[in-house]
Nucleic acid binder design. Structure first.
Length: 232
DNA sequence: ATGGTTGATGTTCAA
C-alpha cells in the first residue's frame, strides 16, 4: 500500500499537477484537501482515466476533501454524522473510505488563525470531536490511516525555527496535546517512524514571504497510522 | 514593512 496526502489549494487550479503526480508517483491512494469545489464540479472522469475511483466531500469556495483510490473505495462517510456536534458546521473537512483493506480518514483540520481566537478554540474542539468520531468508528486494532492537513506541527523539530513561531498557532501546547491524544489512542506518526530524528523536512512553506525559497517550512501534513500499519 | 501571494462564488475572504 502506497499513499499520499496533498493540500491542493483548489483542485481546479491544481488538476494538471495532480494528474502529473499520479503519472509518476505510483500511489494506490491519494488524499486531497482544499479542493475548493462543489461535488458537482469534481473531475471524477479525469481520475477515472488514470485508473482511480474517487469520492469528494465539498462545499464550493472553501475547504473540500477527496480520496482517489486504485485499490477500491467502499464504506464512504463524510463529516462527523448526526451524533456529534461539529464545531465548524457545514464545512467539508472529513471524508473516510475503505481502500485496499485500510480504513482511510482524510482530514482538513481548521487553521485556527490566531491563538485564543474563536477559530482557534473551535480548532481544538474540532480535533477533540474528530477523535470521538474516530473512537466511535474504529478500534485501535483496525488498519486505519488518519491522514491530511492537520495544521499542527507535532514538535519543535517540525518547524524551521521554533523561535519564529512563539505566539503563533500550529505549535501551541494545546494543539500538540491533540496529536498526543491521538497517539495515546493508538496512532503513530508514520513520518517520525521512518525519520525519527531528521529535521528540516517539511510539508508546507508559506507562499507569502518567499518561505519556500528560504526553506522556511513546517511539517503540518501528517500520516497517522494504527499499530497494524505501523508494524507493516 | 501588522509585510508577502494565491485562489475563489472576488472590489473581500481565507490561508
Amino acid at each position: 500500500m502506497r499513499l499520499a496526502t496533498w493540500n491542493v489549494n483548489s483542485l481546479k487550479a491544481r488538476l494538471p499537477r495532480v494528474e502529473e503526480f499520479l503519472g509518476y508517483a505510483d500511489v494506490d491512494v491519494l488524499c486531497m484537501q482544499e479542493t475548493k469545489l462543489t461535488d458537482e464540479a469534481f473531475p471524477h472522469l479525469a481520475f477515472a482515466a488514470l485508473g482511480y475511483e474517487t469520492v469528494h466531500h465539498g462545499q464550493g469556495r472553501w475547504n473540500g476533501v477527496a480520496i482517489a483510490s486504485r485499490v477500491g473505495l467502499d464504506d464512504v462517510a463524510v463529516g462527523f454524522g448526526d451524533d456529534l456536534d461539529d464545531p465548524y458546521p457545514g464545512e467539508a473537512r472529513l471524508v473516510a473510505a475503505t481502500c485496499g483493506g485500510v480504513s482511510f480518514v482524510n482530514l482538513y483540520v481548521p487553521n485556527g488563525r490566531e491563538v485564543d481566537s474563536d477559530f482557534y478554540v473551535r480548532k481544538l474542539a474540532w480535533l477533540t470531536t474528530m477523535q470521538e468520531w474516530l473512537d466511535a468508528k474504529h478500534s485501535r486494532a483496525d488498519s486505519v490511516a488518519v491522514v491530511g492537513d492537520y495544521n499542527v506541527a507535532p514538535a519543535d523539530i517540525d518547524v524551521w525555527d521554533s523561535a519564529a513561531f512563539i505566539g503563533s498557532t500550529h505549535v501551541t501546547p494545546a494543539e500538540r496535546e491533540r496529536i498526543r491524544a491521538l497517539e495515546e489512542w493508538g496512532l503513530t506518526d508514520a513520518f517520525r517512524l521512518v525519520f525519527p530524528d531528521d529535521d528540516r523536512l517539511y510539508t508546507f512553506w508559506d507562499y507569502r514571504s518567499g518561505d519556500f525559497h528560504k526553506h522556511h517550512g513546517m511539517r503540518i501534513d501528517l500520516v497517522m497510522v494504527s499499530a497494524p500499519l505501523a508494524r507493516a
